[in-house]
Design a protein around this nucleic acid. Structure first.
Length: 268
DNA sequence: ATGGTCGATCGTCGA
C-alpha cells in the first residue's frame, strides 16, 4: 500500500495557494507539509485544499513570519504537537500522528531558522539562534515513542554534504554550509537515529538541490542551488522507501517559491 | 568582492 509525503517551503501560502492546488492536483501526495506559510491561522486558505480532498489540516502560523502547516487527505490523530524551540514563540515546528496499514507514524514538520548572513554568533544573534535550535533538535529521537515510526521533513536551512551545494569550497563560509552547522545537523541525525532518505535514492556524489536563490538572473542556467529541504525517517521505514522526487520544474512556475517540493513515496 | 530579489507590510526585517 503506497504512502506519499511531500514537503515544500511555499514562501507565503496565501500568495501561492494556486501553486499549492496545482501541485496537489498533479502529484496528489497523501500529506503535504508546508513551511514559511507567513499566515495567521484564521487567514489560512483551507477551503480550496479541502475541495481537493485534503480535509485534515493542522496549522501553526503567526503573522508575517515563519509558520508551518500539515495538509492531509488521510485522517490525523489527536496526537498533535507544536514545540517552541528555543522558547522564543516562533511557529517553526508541528508534528502529527497518522495510521497507515499496521503502522502508526509521527510526522514532524520543521522550519529551521535561516541564520542571517554572518556565520559568527558573537556578532550575529540570528546565527546563534540557528545553532541553539539545532542543538535542541539533537534531543529528538526517531524512536522516541514505542510503536510509532517517525518521518521528519522540512526546510532545515542546512546543506550538509559536499554535493548538496553548487560549490563546496565557495560556500564553506556561507551560512547553510558552514562546518559548525553541518556538524550540528549531522549530530541531530546520528543522535536521533534518523535516515537521510533523499540520499538513499540519489547517491552522495551527485549534485542535489531543492532551493535556488531569487537573486540569480537565470536560476536554471547558473544552477547555483543548495539542498536545504530534507526528508528523514526512522530506520524501520527505510526499507519501504520506493521513490524520491525533487520537483525541480516547480522553480520555473509562474511567481515561484525559491524552494521546490520534495516527495517521498513508500510501499508499506 | 559585491550585489543581486523576494514577501509581509507600509519602513524595515527576514530570507
Amino acid at each position: 500500500m503506497a504512502l506519499s509525503i511531500a514537503t515544500w517551503n511555499i514562501n507565503s501560502v496565501r500568495l501561492r495557494i494556486g501553486l499549492v492546488e496545482h501541485f496537489l492536483k498533479t502529484h496528489a501526495p497523501d500529506i503535504l507539509c508546508l513551511q514559511e506559510t507567513k499566515c495567521p491561522n484564521d487567514q489560512f486558505p483551507s477551503k480550496p485544499l479541502k475541495a481537493l480532498g485534503y480535509e485534515h489540516i493542522v496549522m501553526h502560523g503567526q503573522k508575517g513570519y515563519h509558520g508551518v502547516a500539515t495538509i492531509s487527505r488521510v485522517p490525523l490523530t489527536e496526537l498533535v504537537e507544536r514545540r517552541d524551540y528555543c522558547g522564543v514563540g516562533d511557529a517553526r515546528h508541528l508534528s502529527v500522528v497518522f495510521r497507515h496499514g499496521a503502522k502508526s507514524i509521527r510526522l514532524h514538520n520543521f522550519y529551521v531558522p535561516a541564520g542571517g548572513d554572518e556565520p559568527d554568533r558573537t556578532i550575529n544573534p540570528k546565527f546563534g539562534h540557528k545553532l541553539d535550535f539545532i542543538e535542541e533538535m539533537k534531543l529528538l529521537h526517531a524512536e522516541a515513542e514505542a510503536g510509532i515510526s517517525s518521518i521528519l521533513v522540512g526546510d532545515l536551512n542546512i546543506a550538509p554534504l559536499e554535493h548538496d551545494v553548487w560549490s563546496h569550497k565557495q560556500l564553506l563560509k556561507i551560512v547553510s554550509h558552514t562546518p559548525v552547522e553541518v556538524d550540528g545537523l549531522t549530530e541531530v541525525m546520528t543522535k536521533g537515529a534518523w535516515v537521510d532518505l533523499m540520499r538513499r535514492k540519489i547517491p552522495a556524489d551527485q549534485k542535489l538541490y531543492t532551493w535556488w536563490s531569487y537573486r540569480a538572473q537565470d536560476w536554471n542556467a547558473a544552477d547555483r542551488g543548495r539542498r536545504l529541504d530534507h526528508i528523514w525517517s526512522s530506520a524501520d521505514l527505510e526499507a519501504h522507501l520506493s521513490e524520491i522526487t525533487v520537483l525541480r520544474e516547480a522553480r520555473g512556475w509562474e511567481r515561484p517559491s525559491d524552494h521546490v517540493p520534495v516527495i517521498a513515496t513508500f510501499d508499506l
